[in-house]
Simulated assay, not measured.
Amino acid sequence: MTDRRRINGPRGGTNPPIFASSLTSPSTLQATRPTRTRRPDELRKIYLKTGLTPSASGSAYLELTPSSPASHQANSLIPVSSSLKLTCTVHGPRPLPRSAPFTLHLLLTTHVKFAPFAARQRRGYTRDASERDLGVHLETALRGVIIGERWPKSGVEVIITVLEGEEDRWWGDEVGAGSNGVGAGGGWGMMNVLAGCITVASAAIVDAGIDCVDMVVGGVAAIVGNSNARRKRQLVTAEGRQTVLDPCPSEHENLEAACVVGYLQNRDEITELWVMGNAGTATEDLVDRAIDAANAARGVLVEAIKEAAQSKFGIKDADNGERKSTAATQDVEMAG
């Protein structure tokens, strides 16, 4: 049944046009495949900003900058690799309805939804199974962080909208160039989406002023096959496969396994763990590398929250390196 209140988009994909001149041969198409120029332990640049939605109790926006240079897409209208853009709003804590049963803990509700234009294949207006799974994983990561005993019979809602999602493979694999393991199983892009959801939700929760035991950060690591391996001792497994941090699926032909964690650095605890693929005996090392990625992303989260706090409470850096409130330095005149 169609919705007559709006003009629905096409049911199929909404991919950009592909000109026949750019598809002369599979070898020519493969030459445009993006390659990873970052070090195996280097993350993409992260942009994180809080307080963008005034009507919400807390909000945040996260964006990952594509690592592939723009010169690769000079002869094509199709981006070389996808990016990741997430927005999160937090509503609450607020009292539950009178009809709701009494609870001693804060009732947490998570909602993850892809925008219809977030991927090459157009998304529907209702949540599908993958979006519901992301919501469950996000709730698991956040449930062990919030101190729920301080808000009895109250609820908080975390809503994340994916404006642009990470693709599961390179677009050239879908037009006849073939795939060497990337398309098998699929879902590689969901790992980066979940890690970004955890980080942006943590920033929005802190912006809402909700008490937490620590700031949870998401991190991703993946095992790449021998075809893409660079011989780095500290990041090569016993089977000769390479472990990379913050993988971009379009930059790797042979992704064998991936892991995403929700990590609390101060407490050294993992609140969420999701492993996909066959890591074999390198599973423990893969989890450790995902924790390293979370620790690296934590610095961006701390700086974003510190900048938001300085702007909200009027805190500025003094010349001697200490911070003081501008409100405290102003003289107060009292009427007699």
Score class of each variant (00 low, 15 high):
L96D: 11
R132Q: 12
A129H: 13
K85M: 07
R150W: 15
W151S: 01
M190T: 01
V206M: 11
L104K: 14
G219S: 01
G183S: 10
A119W: 12
K85C: 03
W188T: 07
G165T: 05
Q121E: 09
R150T: 07
R150K: 15
A129Y: 14
V158M: 04
V162S: 08
D133C: 14
H105R: 14
L108T: 04
T199Y: 09
G172P: 09
G124N: 01
E167I: 04
G225Q: 14
A100F: 10
S99M: 06
P101Y: 06
V136I: 04
A208R: 00
V158Y: 02
S227I: 05
H105D: 12
E164Q: 14
G183H: 09
V193A: 08
G219W: 00
G181T: 07
D128Y: 15
P95V: 00
H91C: 12
E139L: 15
A115V: 06
V136Q: 05
V158A: 05
V158F: 02
R122L: 06
G225K: 07
E139W: 15
A100L: 10
P116Y: 10
G135W: 05
L84F: 03
R122S: 08
G172I: 10
E157W: 10
R127G: 11
E166I: 12
F117M: 09
L194H: 10
A201N: 04
G178R: 13
D173E: 05
G225A: 12
A203N: 03
V220L: 15
V193Q: 03
T126C: 03
P116K: 15
V200W: 00
A118P: 13
G183T: 13
M191F: 15
E139F: 14
A141K: 02
R94I: 03
L138A: 11
L142E: 00
A100C: 08
V136G: 09
T161L: 12
R132H: 08
D207K: 01
S99A: 11
P97F: 14
G124V: 12
A222S: 03
